[in-house]
């Protein structure tokens, strides 16, 4: 049914929205004086028990916070970087006792695994990859995919690493001609990988063989789309995209997220659902995260908006707190929390 028309679901007026669906459960303050850049969640074994921990990243420090009690967190480990600043935390779907981070200035120069020593007494870090890296994604089964540019061409490689962060193997995928911007796994298909390119194509690989299977153009309405989630159903591929480069246009603006259906056999695609801001709200996508049926985005207005992808409309709007715009937002991979951060180091857990 969802393919019969491009839905423009009922959009509640902005003043009906509030963060009521979101309950603030705790807040933590990154003590580092440098600018906060990212947040994430990871399972970490502490005294023989795996616990859902929070990872915060500032420009020159990454910290692991363990839960102390309701609403309370204690900084347990801190990895420091003196030369190259941290750009992002790279979430690894099924890994514990290890955090991956991307370091660089405008572009990623290094990807490192952050761990602690076997006695748990000291932090350590392992260099996994270096170069002019454009895109990186943590995959299931301790794999990490990245694309990088050399003088002549583009390399797309998969690193498999061991529990101690050491590299176990490297595999190259056939690179497309265009620069890859983002990667996404296809849910339930560990042998398949998607990427989006700078020319607004979705490309697909077979991870077992390294073959580049398809290049599928997904329209000229938006450039440089980001792929957040993909799943295959009944012979079609459903892909959730966002559009950081979309211009604000028309009375409703541009959609922040978009669900498309692609036929991999023909490379033809159609819009299934467009996810707009509530009426009266301005802004476009800055950065965001999708988990299960929920999408969250930091907007240029400084607010965070949340969509139920099945209902089709925005279900919560989180305005800036204490006159501080939101900078980044992530769904926790360890529980049902939303992690929202501000540049000054405040992290709010909803």
């Amino acid at each position: 049914d969802s393919l019969k028309q491009t839905e423009r679901a009922d959009v509640p007026a902005g003043d009906n929205l509030n963060p009521g669906n979101l309950q603030l459960v705790s807040k933590l303050k990154n003590p580092s004086g440098s600018c906060s850049v990212d947040v994430g969640a990871v399972w970490w074994e502490i005294a023989g028990v795996k616990q859902p921990c929070i990872v915060t990243a500032c420009e020159y420090a990454v910290s692991l916070w363990k839960p102390l009690g309701p609403g309370q967190w204690r900084e347990m480990y801190s990895w420091l970087f003196t030369e190259v600043p941290v750009l992002q935390i790279v979430s690894m779907p099924d890994v514990y006792n290890l955090v991956c981070v991307a370091l660089g200035n405008l572009e990623i120069r290094e990807i490192r695994a952050l761990l602690c020593s076997s006695d748990g007494e000291s932090e350590k870090q392992v260099l996994l990859s270096s170069g002019n890296i454009h895109a990186v994604l943590g995959l299931t089964e301790r794999r990490l995919v990245s694309s990088s540019r050399t003088l002549c061409d583009q390399q797309v490689e998969i690193i498999t690493f061991a529990e101690d962060g050491g590299s176990q193997g490297k595999q190259f995928l056939m690179p497309p001609e265009e620069t890859v911007l983002t990667f996404a796994e296809i849910e339930g298909m560990q042998e398949a990988l998607l990427g989006t390119t700078i020319m607004n194509n979705v490309v697909m690989w077979n991870l077992n063989t390294g073959q580049l299977l398809r290049k599928m153009h997904v329209g000229d309405s938006y450039q440089a789309s980001i792929c957040h989630k993909a799943y295959s159903e009944m012979g079609l591929l459903f892909v959730v995209l966002s559009h950081p480069c979309a211009k604000e246009r028309g009375p409703s603006g541009s959609p922040v997220f978009q669900l498309i259906a692609v036929n991999p056999k023909t490379a033809l695609s159609v819009d299934v659902m467009l996810y707009y801001l509530p009426q009266g709200q301005a802004g476009r996508f800055l950065e965001g995260d999708v988990k299960d049926n929920f999408a969250a985005a930091v907007l240029t207005s400084g607010a965070i908006a949340i969509w139920d992808l099945l209902l089709g409309h925005c279900t919560a709007l989180l305005p800036p707190i204490s006159d501080q715009n939101w900078s980044f937002v992530k769904w926790s991979g360890t529980d049902s929390h939303l992690l929202a951060g501000q540049k000054d180091g405040n992290i709010f857990v909803y």
């Binding site: 393919l3 073959q211 259906a261």
Partner: peptide
């Protein structure tokens, strides 16, 4: 839009594309 816009659909698209694509 209808499924006709997307052309013929195959449930085994991944295997079929893998057998057609250059190694």
């Amino acid at each position: 839009c209808s499924q006709a816009d997307l052309g013929p659909i195959s449930i085994n698209w991944f295997e079929e594309l893998s057998s057609e694509a250059p190694p």
